[in-house]
Amino acid sequence: MNLKHLAIGVVCSLGSIPVVGLLLQQLAEAAPNDIFFGWDFYIEVVVTGLLQGVMYALVALGFVLIFKASAIFNFAQGAMVLFAALAMVGFIEMGLHWTLAFLLAAVVMIIVAILIERVVLRPMVNQEPIILFMATIGIFFVLDGLGQTIWGSNVKALDIGISQTPWFVLQGEFFPGGLRLIPTEVVAAVVGALTVTLLAVLFQYTKVGRALRAVADDHQAALSVGIPLKFIWAIVWSVAGIVGLVAGVMWGTSLGVQFSLSLIALKALPVLILGGFTSIPGAIVGGLIVGVGEQVGEVFIGPLFGGAIQDWFAYMLAMIFLLFRPQGLFGERIIERV
């Protein structure tokens, strides 16, 4: 079911690329002084956007996981990304190889998840969602402060052996200079795709996955059939922490590990609104739409507004979605039957 939705979503998004291209071509002809349009250039922008989108999707995924299983909007997801990346850099600075550092950072995130469950979630069982949301704001600042206290607040480089020089592929008639790709983004896209496939399989086909979805639907009923909520929550927060680590590594290698990493969570918001808070495929498709929309918007429509629309384009897109489809593209339909 989930995979089918994902396939439909991907096909629709890909299908809209040439359509948008044609529209932009018309636009470029109408205002030739401001906008330059060429198909090779357009494709390059789209590809950059898609890769960027996967990075957004990785951050959004962490939100979706926790929201699905506990109906908590985890404001601290951004801080978890930062904390995970800081921990990994910390381990690398101790002289460890990055793979080992990654594994240790994953262990750190699992411990953080268990602590959050023990200290914050367990005493708050059955409180209003808004109270739990406030609690996650608390977690945000604690993690943020703690991370910087332990590992310092200066910008750190995170090097996992991916070269920063762009690749030029498919050199030929269509792309005279070759299609420009940033290696980090390509790796991020591959890792993102793997992560998502793994999560989809975990959710759809395993016993624990079924229990996770059951808890998401009705945690009292889940309790009544003997699903231990504490265990499930610890798992969900751990998985969200590890997904955060993956996102942190990917963003860290391209931007450097620093405080602003915790703010990319804000970019995940429009992704979530587009894709739906409860859908893993939604996070992916939402991420891709926001990524491509931003890039294409900035390059081809931006000049009409004097540029710099990248910062607000996604939010505007999200607002339009809220008007017409508040549950997002793939959000669970609100089933109401009496």
């Binding site: 016993k207 639907d217 889940a222 003997g226």
Partner: peptide, 18 residues
Amino acid sequence: HCFEHLTVEENLLTGAYT
């Protein structure tokens, strides 16, 4: 209190969790 978004069979299977 069925799990609304799970199928009927998945609902039944959650009962076997323990």
